[in-house]
Amino acid sequence: MSNTAQNLASAEKIRNNPKFRELVSKRTRFAWTLSAIVLVMYFGFIALIAFNKALLATPLGAGINTTVGFPLGVGVILSAVILTGIYVYRANGEFDELNRQIIEESR
C-alpha cells in the first residue's frame, strides 16, 4: 500500500508543522474547558440535591409555584445543548480550516 507510505511522509510533515501544535493545543484547551464547565454545572446540581434541597425548594417569588430547582435543572439541560453547539461551531469552522491547511501543506 503506497497509501501508507504516503501517509507516513505526510505524518512526518505534520509533526513538524507549527500549525499542528497550534491546532492540538487550541482545540484540546477548548474541549477541556467546556468539559470542565459541564462537570462543574452537573456535579454542582447534584451537590445541591445532596446537600441543599431547601434552596432548590425555594419558590421563585411570593405567590409563585415554580421553585428555583426548575430553571436550574432545565438550565443544565439547555446549557449542555448550547455548549455542544458552541463546540461544533468552532470545531467545524476555525479548527477544521486549520486542519485543512495542515493536511494541504503535508502533501
Binding site: A31, W32, L34, S35, V38, V76, A80, T84, V88
Partner: peptide, 10 residues
C-alpha cells in the same frame, strides 16, 4: 443528557 457534551468534546 450531560454525558453527551463529554462525548462530543473528548
Amino acid at each position: 443528557l450531560v454525558g453527551w457534551p463529554i462525548i462530543l468534546f473528548l
